Simulated assay, not measured.
Amino acid sequence: MLTGKQKRFLRAKAHHLDSIFQVGKGGVNENLIKQVGDALEARELIKVSILQNCDEDKQTVADKLQEGAQANIVQVIGKTIVLYKESKRNKQIELP
């Protein structure tokens, strides 16, 4: 679980990132969860955008990705989700 200070730090780092995944009509599936998990292992901090044709609620999508990838939700703002997970092999971000 992240503290408020850590979330603030990660939001600042994520501000300049581009979304690397898009959730569309298919919603969240096993393949997407696996790819998000792999990306989190490589990058630690990612953005996921939700397209207009997605049938699921943004908080539901965020919860499914968090649970599936064992990540932390940093922020859900608009149609964008910011996820963080500490990398086991490639640690880059040092939390305050």
Rank of each mutant, 00 (worst) to 15 (best):
E67H: 03
R89C: 06
D55M: 14
I77T: 13
K58W: 09
K64Q: 12
Q66P: 01
T60E: 01
L51Y: 06
S49W: 05
E86I: 02
A39K: 12
Q75D: 15
V61G: 00
G37I: 06
A62F: 02
K47N: 10
S87W: 01
E94R: 08
V61Y: 01
E86C: 03
A69P: 12
L65I: 05
V36S: 08
L83E: 03
G68V: 02
V74P: 14
R43W: 08
G37F: 06
Q66G: 02
S87M: 04
K85L: 01
E67C: 03
E94C: 08
L51C: 11
A62M: 04
A62K: 01
Q70N: 14
V74E: 11
V48L: 09
G78S: 07
D57C: 06
C54E: 05
N53L: 04
Q59H: 14
V61N: 00
T60Y: 00
Q92I: 04
A71G: 08
T60C: 00
Q70Y: 13
T60M: 00
I50C: 06
C54N: 14
N53Y: 07
G78H: 13
K64I: 01
I81E: 07
Q52I: 13
D38C: 11
N53T: 11
V36F: 04
E94K: 12
R43C: 06
A39W: 04
V76P: 00
V36Q: 03
Q75W: 06
L45M: 05
E41H: 08
C54I: 07
D38A: 14
A42K: 15
E44H: 07
R89Y: 08
D55R: 15
K58Y: 09
R89G: 06
N72V: 06
C54R: 10
R43A: 10
T60H: 00
K47G: 13
D57G: 03
L45I: 07
D63S: 10
G37T: 13
L40M: 08
V36Y: 03
N72W: 10
G78Q: 11
E41F: 05
